[in-house]
Every structure is written in structure tokens, then in C-alpha cells.
Design a protein around this nucleic acid. Structure first.
Length: 922
RNA sequence: GCCCGGGUGGUGGAAUCGGUAGACACGCAGGACUUAAAAUCCUGUGGGCAGUGAUGUCCGUGCGGGUUCAAGUCCCGCCCCGGGUACCA
């Protein structure tokens, strides 16, 4: 019987369904293992061959772990809420509820084709009310908690109220936004609206007026990580700064822990680096500069207090809150400048960055030590969102300050001795300080600590740690997201009662963005207007649902809790998390933040969600191009086109039509309506196509669908080929041609074990030592490499082993039974069929993974490569029992060696037993 | 600019601790079987030079140096490609 993958796959699927092979239940008698895939946003385009790469790798690991005695959780779900899903619905002029459901069904179908062992009963969908009930619940926990700086831990907001009632705002340990001080009496006198406003400065989920990224085209604000180079990451639309009242998550309170705990994680260095850069911790001093003839004090943050004597002016951000007060009569130009600068989009501000712009305010600040007058300027190179939005400018030792000083003719005061070949601005932290009073003669690093000590002693400033990480904007003015469980009554934001969760998203026919910074939900009057007040109409961003989904898989049907503590304590954390690098700072940082918060509240047993992270590379498309000569309109075969491609237009053609990188003339005529037979310039009767490696996308006609591959070769072949392509972390091009190799491997396994009539032709003969050695070499490899996620080398090991067994004409069932069980994680369908044909009882995928027996691997001789001066000249097989000196003797007395030794002086002999012999001649 | 990855045959890639570079595949070439095709099997396949030939010999892991008996692997200096990030005070 030939290898009929269609029948084999159908049978195996039936058998798995019948035995509920992939249903997972916590088994306390076994150790747990949690393998997680980053769940997909189900796009309208369906899966291409690049998507399942990580799913297949994780499936192999999960199956291997199951067979090795672990209770394994390997779930899959859908990230269905959010901008992309809604944009897709708008484009196709349908409701997101409908399109989302359809896309999920299609995704699931495609995934099921591949034989991935997911327990679909545990699947979650973020847009399902039973799921987002708990997203809302966690939001309410954030709303009702504050952060204690002294304990580095979240605490109930009642603690804050208690402190304010008894002690007012003095000496409280809570981290938040600065506000005016008050006494206990004052607090108790405040009306509830005022108290609520003050509490907003501390809640971990809070509302504030802030400069946010407003995207006109998408009709919503975006978080910092959703904006790249001044454009929206999704769609590439312009983004501008706007001051709006929004919900935020106070992730900044967790900045230090998010940074410190990176250390213990088994993540790639690059990934940790990206997170660490995003958090952007910097240590320095904050100090106040008094404004001359006023009460105003300008706070600045600097990492270089050593250069304080080099300050020659100050610069405020255009959005600085005190700017209007600082600007003197007659200098209104500065206000006009600031207004115009803050109205410019982020993009425009960056584009004009070669030219420093700014204006003088007319005011002067006083140097905190020397008392010297320093002109105060406003300039858009100072960012409102970082530090205090004001800088002390040291043009001699900061490039940006230098550029500004040069543009406006401001003084430049060097305070560090300049090394020979250096010029200003000199930013290095090497050198000796000068013109700096008590710092003169000190090294920069000494100067920093000396100045810090001085500032603190004189109460002029404080040692301060600053973070680049800012609080996460949590409001979106869009329809397709989780509604906030918040109702406003008498102007106060109040939490919806937990019993009333979920607050369900109302069905709306017209859900399109309003174009104003206002959610479409404002139009659902019946939904927003309640007897007790008005509902919040913004919705949560895409990352809300994805920040905790991995916990819900542990106990997805629970109606009382987001997951039971029994389940949480059994699975603990994700052991291996597989996904792309694109989520380095968004999802992974928010998920860590939420997890730490839940840990502080005692809900989860550990403070990090993902122990090990594996980033799969992208599978790139291999595009085919047809070259058309621009001047003549001729379609020219690739071999005849000059390398420079000058004068030629490269047109993408569908790779699913092209065979062996060539098109038949009639195909060309069918694809291009303007093509005529006389316009074709062929080679050997065909039009050869150019090849380019680029991202797989519809517009490039290079998308290969897994369904088509499964149709032609079967799912086992697709699984193995995806793994065989190369290391999982690496990006590599897809080339369907190469698939023959693994397909042939599976056919050979089948044909060797199963007769034409469909019977097992293996014998019960006891296996030869050589066969045992081949098998156990394979097993040893697998045990190592599967854990390392080095699946490509596993596949080669299978091929090597089979090649050897075929050479040996081995037919022993004692070899091929463990061989096919070992194959089961990689090619589960064929393994199931082989297991059955070999008379196995139960399911192959539930058997114990074959163990390595080292005794079959012991060698007693080794073929030594013998080198002279590092160049290999011959091989010599010797017993491994020989000592180095015996080996040396054997080698030197060998006839072949004599030839090379002739007329040469023997300098040295290097013998590494079991490896190499090298003879040094002189 | 800065910070990470990475450069190995025609292609994807392998190579444990510094120890036989190119495993395993694809492709290609030749052959067997076949009326033919498919399928299957066998042989060869980094490059140069010499030889009818077995074979011999030199070069070879982006480039240039270095360490070492021995370097794809370690060190120094460059070049190129991919990713991240950018007025972060």
C-alpha cells in the first residue's frame, strides 16, 4: 500500500476525536508543563505558511513533553477585539461581530488541518463577554488599587483614603502624580468630587488630561508603542499630539520591577535589551531653578550634574505648563512659537530637526549655585513628556544644546578639559572638570557624585531616577473593544458593581468612528444613559485582552473567578512562550505588568508570566517577477535582462502559477492583458522569471497557503518541512520545491514498514548492534534538540537514521516501533498509523517517548584523522582503549606516516584521544 | 548615529569545549528500471591545477591582520545584510 496521507490523516483524526486525545485535565500526579503560542488576531486573509511555524514547533515540544510524562497545557485562542478587526469590518462594509466570527472559524479550520494538539475546549476569544468580563474585572482591580513606593507593591485604595483622613497628604508612601498638599482636616472638608479628583492621581487605572497621540484617520488615540516614526503602526496614518482626558494605566510605578526582573528570564538578550531600552532608566539629579523676580521655580532633570557650571541658558518644552507665566510682556512671539510648535505633528517636528527652532521668553533663571542669570528659551527639541519638560542647557557637553546655542548665538562654556583630538560638543564621561568651583580637578564620575552630595546637602536638588517608560494610554475612541465598567455620576467616575459584569458592548449598526475624539458608543443613548449616571463610552485598547489570556486558558469556563487558584497554582506560569519579536515592547511588557499586579494582590503564584521566550523568525516569500521593457513593452525572459534591470519594470506574478521560475507563453498572455505573442522574448520556449525574497503578502503575489500544501503532500510533510527549513529563530524564505525531501522521507518510512497489501512487514528478529546504534544516536539527538527547540537538526537526524537502517536492511520491529514513536511529535498522523499497523494498543501520541540506552552508543574504535602541520593526510582506525603515547606510536610507525616524515624534523605530536592526531614538522 | 542579530557550495542549512568544513536535504548532471511517463533506485556534485585513470595537489566559511600544533569557531580592525531605536537631557 502506498503512503496515502489523506486516508492516514482522516483515520488518525477520527481516532484522536474518539479518544479525546487532546483534552487536558490537571493531573497532580504529574509535573505540569505549559507551552504557549502567541494567539493570533484572526485576519480576513487566513493563514499563510509563515504563521504556523511557531505553532508547529510548540506542538512538537508539547507532544514530546506529554510523551515524557508531563501534564501539558498547550492551548490556542483568538485576539479578536481591536483596531485591525474593526478596520477589516469597515473595509468590507460588514459588522465586526460577523467578520470576526467568520475569520475565527476559518483560522480554526486551517489550524486543525495541521494536526496541532490543542484542547479546543480551552480556547478563549477576547471579544467573548464571558472572557472580557474578567478583563473588565482586572481593570476594576487596577482602578481600586494604588502603588506603595515603600513596599514596592500594589495596595487597596482604602489605605490611601485612611492615610489622607488621618495625616493628610504629608509623608504618604503612595506613588502618583504631584498635586497641592493638604492636611487631614482639609481632606475631610473636601467634597466627594474633590476627593475623587485627588484619588485619580494615585489609582493604577486613572483618568487624566494629557498630551496623547491622536490619529485622525483612525479616529482614535494610540499608545506610544502603537506609533512608529510619527505614524500609526497600523495603517501608517499621521499622528498628532492632542491634549485629551483619557484613561491611563500607571505602568510607570512598576518600571523598576519590570526592569530588574528581566534578569531572571530565559529570553533572548535582544528581547531583554528592547524592553530595557523602552523602560529607559536613567539616574541623575532633579533640581530647581528660580525664575528672577518671580516665585516660579523651574524643575529640571539632568544626568550630568557635574556640568552644572557649564549651564548657559534654559529651554522649556512648548507644552510646558508654566510657559505662559514665564513669558514676559513684549515677548509674546515665544507663545506664538510654542503654539505653532505643539500643533505640528510628531512627524513634522522630527523632520525639521536639522534646524534648531525656538524663541526667547524674556525671563531669566538664576543659577542655583552661582546665582548667575540664565536666559529662558522655549524650543521644540525639549520633549514635554520626558523628565520635567525643561532642561538646563550645557551647550559645551550636549549635542542638542550645542546646536541650539549655535543657532541663537548663546554662550558655550566648556567645563571639562578637552582631550587632544576632540571638539565641542564633548559628551564623553571621561576627563577632568574645570571652571567649576569646588569640582575643579575632579574626574567626571567623581564630579557627578560630589555635585549630587552638594545639592542634597544644600537642599538644592535630589538624586532622582527617571524613566522613559510612560503610563499607558488605555482609552480608544473606537467601537470594537471592551467597554469600561465605569459610570459617571455627578462628575465622579464610579466602578460598576462586580456582580453587574460584564458590561456588554451594545450591538450597533453604525459603529464607524465619529471623526471627533469621541467614541461611536456615545451614539448608543439607550446604553449610555442610566438612572444612576452616564456610562464611559471609550473602549479598551487591543492589548487589554492579550495582557492576561494565558491565565484564562488554565480555567477558561470559570464563572466565579478569572481562574481558580487550584488551576493557577498547578500550572503556575508559562514554561515556554513562542511568538514573534514584534511584540517585544507592547504585549510582553503589559502582560508582565498585569501579572505583577495580580501577583501583588495574591492571585497568581509567581511574579513573571513567561519563563522562557522563543522568538520565531519570519518565513519570507519568494516572489516571482516578470520583466517588461519600459520603452518597447516587451516581456523579456529573466536571463536576457541586464543585471542592473535598467529600463525594465519588474512585475510580480503569482508564485502559485509559476513552475520552476518560468512561465509558458500562453500563461504570460493570460496574466497580462497587454501582452501579445510578438512582445514575448523567450528563452528555450519559456519566459524565465526573476526571483526576489521579500515579506509574504497578497500584494506581492507570493503567498503560499498551508491548505494547498496539505492537499498536495499532507500535513505531516508540511509540519516536517517547516521545521526542516532551518532554526526556528531565523527568518528564511519559503520554497515549495524543497518539500520533496521530507515527503520522500515519510514515503520511505511507510514503504519500508508496510507492504503493498497494507500489512506490517517488520520482523521480530532481534536487532543488530549497528541498528541499535543508529536508533539510539537518533534518540539521543532528539532528547537534546527538542528541548533546545532545534527542530531542524531533529529532522536531519531522522533522515540520517533511516538512511542507515535502510543500508543495513534492518526490518526489526524493535527498531521501527521506537523509531515511529519518536516520529510522533513531528509527524503525528503517520506515527499513529504505523503504531496501529505494528499492533500497538491505544494512541501513539500517548505512549512513552523512547529512552536512550547509552550502552548501544559505546564505541571501541575510532577513525583518527592524522594531520601533518594541521593538514589532514590520512585516516587511521585505532582502538579507543589506547593511551595517547600508544596512539602516537601506532601513527608514527604507520607506512603512510613515514612518507610524510621523510626528510622532516619531528617537532611535536598532538594526540587528543577520540578526536585527532596532529604531527608538527619543522 | 547608537544597540542587538547575522554573512559557510547554485539553494535551505549542519558542524558539541578551538580538533576531519560543507552533515541532511533541494537543485543539477549522468545512469538503471519502463513502450513512455510517474514513482523508485544507483553514481557524481565547493573551486582551481595536473593526470587517460585511480589519484595527487593547492585554494576555500564577507575582507585584512593576530593568537594557536590546530580557527567557520577566540582576539583586533574593516565591509555588507537584517532587526530594534532615535532630539530621552
Amino acid at each position: 500500500m502506498k503512503y496515502d496521507f489523506r486516508e492516514i490523516e482522516l483515520n488518525a483524526k477520527d481516532k484522536w476525536a474518539e479518544h479525546k486525545a487532546y483534552a487536558v485535565a490537571e493531573d497532580p500526579s504529574k509535573p505540569s508543563f505549559y507551552v504557549l503560542d502567541m494567539f493570533p488576531y484572526p485576519s480576513g486573509a487566513g493563514l499563510h505558511v509563515g504563521h504556523p511555524l511557531g505553532y508547529i514547533a510548540s506542538d512538537i515540544l508539547a507532544r514530546y513533553k506529554t510523551m515524557s510524562g508531563y501534564c501539558v497545557l498547550h492551548p490556542m485562542g483568538f485576539d479578536a477585539f481591536g483596531l485591525p478587526a474593526e478596520q477589516y469590518a469597515i473595509q468590507t462594509n460588514r459588522h465586526p461581530e460577523e467578520t470576526t466570527k467568520e475569520n475565527i472559524d476559518r483560522y480554526r479550520q486551517q489550524l486543525e488541518l495541521l494536526g496541532l494538539g490543542y484542547d479546543w475546549n480551552r480556547s478563549v476569544t477576547t471579544s467573548d463577554p464571558n472572557y472580557y468580563k474578567w478583563t473588565q474585572w482586572i481593570f476594576l482591580q487596577l482602578f481600586n488599587h494604588v502603588y506603595r513606593g515603600d513596599l514596592q507593591k500594589a495596595a487597596p485604595i482604602e489605605e490611601l483614603f485612611g492615610h489622607f483622613r488621618h495625616f493628610g497628604s504629608s509623608n504618604h508612601p503612595f506613588l502618583g502624580t504631584a498635586h497641592d498638599a493638604f492636611s487631614a482636616d482639609e481632606w475631610n472638608q473636601f467634597d466627594s468630587e474633590k476627593q475623587a479628583a485627588i484619588a485619580m492621581n494615585y489609582r493604577l487605572a486613572y483618568q487624566a488630561d494629557a498630551w496623547v497621540n491622536w490619529c485622525e484617520a483612525l479616529g482614535t488615540v494610540l499608545a506610544n508603542d502603537e506609533v512608529k516614526d510619527g505614524f500609526s503602526e497600523r495603517g501608517g496614518h499621521a499622528v498628532e499630539k492632542k491634549r485629551l482626558k483619557q484613561w491611563f494605566l500607571r505602568i510607570s510605578t512598576y518600571a523598576d520591577r519590570l526592569l530588574l526582573d528581566l534578569e531572571g528570564l530565559n529570553w533572548s538578550a535582544a528581547m531583554k535589551e528592547m524592553q530595557s531600552n523602552w523602560i529607559g532608566k536613567s539616574e541623575g539629579a532633579s533640581l530647581g531653578f528660580k525664575v528672577a523676580n518671580s516665585e516660579i521655580v523651574l524643575e529640571v532633570f539632568t544626568t550630568r550634574p557635574d556640568t552644572l557650571f557649564g549651564v548657559s541658558f534654559m529651554v522649556l518644552a512648548p507644552e510646558h505648563p508654566l510657559l505662559a507665566e514665564v513669558v514676559k510682556f513684549g515677548f509674546e512671539e515665544a507663545l506664538a512659537y510654542a503654539k505653532q510648535a505643539s500643533n505640528r505633528s510628531e512627524r513634522e517636528r522630527q523632520a525639521g530637526s536639522e534646524q534648531a527652532t525656538g524663541a526667547f521668553t524674556g525671563s531669566y533663571a538664576l543659577h542655583p549655585i552661582s546665582g548667575k542669570e540664565l536666559p529662558i528659551w522655549v524650543g521644540d527639541y525639549v520633549l514635554a513628556g520626558y523628565g520635567t519638560g525643561a532642561v538646563m542647557a550645557v551647550p559645551a557637553h550636549d549635542t542638542r544644546d550645542h546646536k541650539f546655542a549655535m543657532a541663537f548665538g548663546l554662550p558655550i562654556l566648556p567645563v571639562i578639559e578637552l582631550p587632544e583630538d576632540e571638539s565641542l560638543p564633548y559628551e564623553s564621561k571621561e576627563g577632568r572638570l574645570m571652571h567649576s568651583d569646588f569640582l575643579n580637578g575632579l574626574e567626571v564620575k567623581e564630579g557627578i557624585s560630589a555635585m549630587l552630595a552638594h545639592l542634597e546637602a544644600k537642599k538644592l536638588g535630589l538624586k532622582t531616577v527617571n524613566y522613559r517608560l510612560r503610563d499607558a494610554n488605555f482609552s480608544r475612541q473606537r467601537y470594537w473593544g471592551e467597554p469600561f465598567p465605569i459610570v459617571y455620576s455627578t462628575g465622579i467616575a464610579k466602578a460598576v458593581d462586580v456582580q453587574d459584569l460584564p458590561v456588554e458592548l451594545p450591538h450597533m449598526e453604525d459603529f464607524k468612528p465619529t471623526g471627533r475624539p469621541e467614541s461611536p458608543l456615545t451614539k448608543a443613548k439607550a446604553w449610555t444613559e442610566l438612572p444612576e449616571g452616564i456610562r464611559e463610552t471609550d473602549t479598551m485598547p487591543g492589548f487589554a485582552g492579550s495582557s492576561w489570556y494565558f491565565l484564562r486558558y488554565m480555567d477558561p469556563k470559570n464563572n466565579e473567578h478569572f481562574a481558580s487558584s487550584a488551576a493557577l497554582n498547578y500550572w503556575k506560569q508559562v514554561d515556554v512562550y513562542i511568538g514573534g519579536t514584534e511584540h517585544a515592547v507592547g504585549h510582553l511588557l503589559y502582560a508582565r505588568f498585569w501579572h505583577k499586579f495580580l501577583y501583588d494582590l495574591g492571585y497568581v503564584p509567581g511574579h513573571e508570566p513567561f519563563k522562557r521566550l522563543v522568538n520565531q523568525g519570519m518565513i519570507l516569500g519568494r516572489s516571482n517577477l516578470v520583466y517588461r521593457e519600459t520603452s518597447t513593452g516587451k516581456y523579456v525572459s529573466a536571463g536576457l535582462v541586464p543585471t542592473s534591470k535598467k529600463g525594465f519594470q519588474a512585475l510580480h506574478v503569482d508564485v502559485n502559477v509559476v513552475h520552476d521560475d518560468a512561465l509558458l507563453p500562453e500563461q504570460v498572455l493570460a496574466i497580462f492583458p497587454e501582452a501579445r505573442p510578438h512582445l514575448l522574448v523567450l528563452e528555450e520556449g519559456v519566459l524565465k522569471c526573476g526571483v526576489e525574497i521579500e515579506k509574504m503578502s497578497k500584494s506581492k503575489f507570493n503567498v503560499v497557503n498551508p491548505d494547498a500544501i496539505v492537499e498536495d503532500y499532507g500535513a505531516d510533510t508540511l509540519r516536517m518541512y517547516e521545521m526542516f527549513l532551518g532554526p526556528i529563530e531565523q527568518s528564511k524564505p519559503w520554497n515549495t520545491q524543497g518539500i520533496e525531501g521530507v515527503n520522500k522521507f515519510l514515503r520511505r518510512v511507510w514503504r519500508h514498514c508496510i507492504s503493498e497489501g497494507g500489512h506490517c512487514v517488520l520482523t521480530s528478529d532481534s536487532p543488530e548492534p549497528a541498528a541499535l546504534k543508529s536508533l539510539h544516536t537518533l534518540l539521543k539527538r532528539l532528547h537534546q534538540d527538542i528541548e533546545d527547540m532545534s527542530m531542524n537538526t531533529c529532522i536531519s537526524a531522522f533522515m540520517i537514521c533511516l538512511n542507515e537502517l535502510l543500508d543495513q536492511k534492518c526490518k526489526s520491529i524493535e527498531i521501527f516501533r521506537p523509531f515511529s514513536l519518536a516520529l510522533s511529535p513531528f509527524a503525528p498522523f503517520i506515527a499513529e498509523a504505523l503504531w496501529e499497523k505494528m499492533g500497538g494498543v491505544g494512541l501513539a501520541c500517548k505512549q512513552e517517548f523512547p529512552k536512550v540506552e547509552e550502552k548501544h552508543l559505546v564505541e571501541d574504535q575510532f577513525s583518527y584523522p592524522v594531520s601533518f602541520n594541521g593538514k589532514k593526510r590520512f585516516d587511521l582506525t585505532l582502538p579507543l582503549s589506547l593511551s595517547p603515547s600508544e596512539i602516537q606510536q601506532e601513527v608514527l610507525s604507520h607506512a603512510e606516516a613515514k612518507k610524510w616524515l621523510q626528510g622532516q624534523t619531528l617537532r611535536k605530536v598532538i594526540v587528543v584521544p577520540g578526536r585527532i592526531v596532529n604531527i608538527v614538522l619543522g
